[in-house]
Design a protein around this nucleic acid. Structure first.
Lengths: 99, 99
DNA sequence: TTAACATATGAGCATTTGTTCATATGTTTG
DNA sequence: CAAACATATGAACAAATGCTCATATGTTAA
């Protein structure tokens, strides 16, 4: 029997971890908004109609996963998509949905 | 503020649901194995070193999500990838990982 | 038809996850 | 410096999730 999933055990684990990040409504909405333009925490919260705290907790997860990056601008922290793979993943997922 | 995530509310919800399926070690391993060849339940269980029951429960989820399809062959049920989007999604995820 | 095999499924349980609430940290302005 | 603003974080709790165990359903061969 095929045992490649043992061989690729670690890669597949990481892959699952990656998709897990995208597998939550709140996070995918956040990423979707960020795909269009960089946004500060408060504006993200407003866009999704959620509390600043909830958004902040999720941003932490997105940042730890290196899907977003930050920079400070005055009192605000501006979040943006870390690399184009995020857009690719969302795009290809959307293509699957739309059928 | 950008409210496109309201506009695309439903699509983004479905997208999250899709990625949620990929966001589990067991399921991604199953899909990975199935990407290479169609397999019956018992062989999948063996390949992943898991119980038949656990695999069967997950296969149900994969089937409900239309990521896999089945056909009967004697006493066995043979599972296979339902469409090539599954391979694309795994592939693009892998590309992101390997960096 | 009955025994053996292959898969499916429901209930129960432990773990994980996402939100809220309260509060801490950090920055700018007066 | 103090007050106001923006974000981060820890604890607690409810909901969702994945596995196990027992058993049901369905198929084939004797």
């Amino acid at each position: 029997m095929n045992k490649n999933c043992e061989k690729y055990e670690n890669e597949l684990y990481d892959l699952a971890e990656l998709f897990k990040i995208f597998g939550d409504s709140t996070r995918i909405k956040m990423l979707f908004v960020l795909c269009e333009s960089e946004v500060c925490v408060a504006n993200l919260a407003e866009a999704l109609d959620m509390t600043q705290s909830a958004i902040s907790h999720q941003l932490k997860i997105l940042k730890q996963s290196k899907l977003v990056k930050t920079r400070r601008e005055g009192k605000s922290i501006i979040y943006s998509i870390a690399d184009d793979h995020v857009r690719s993943i969302i795009k290809i997922g959307m293509e699957h949905i739309e059928e």
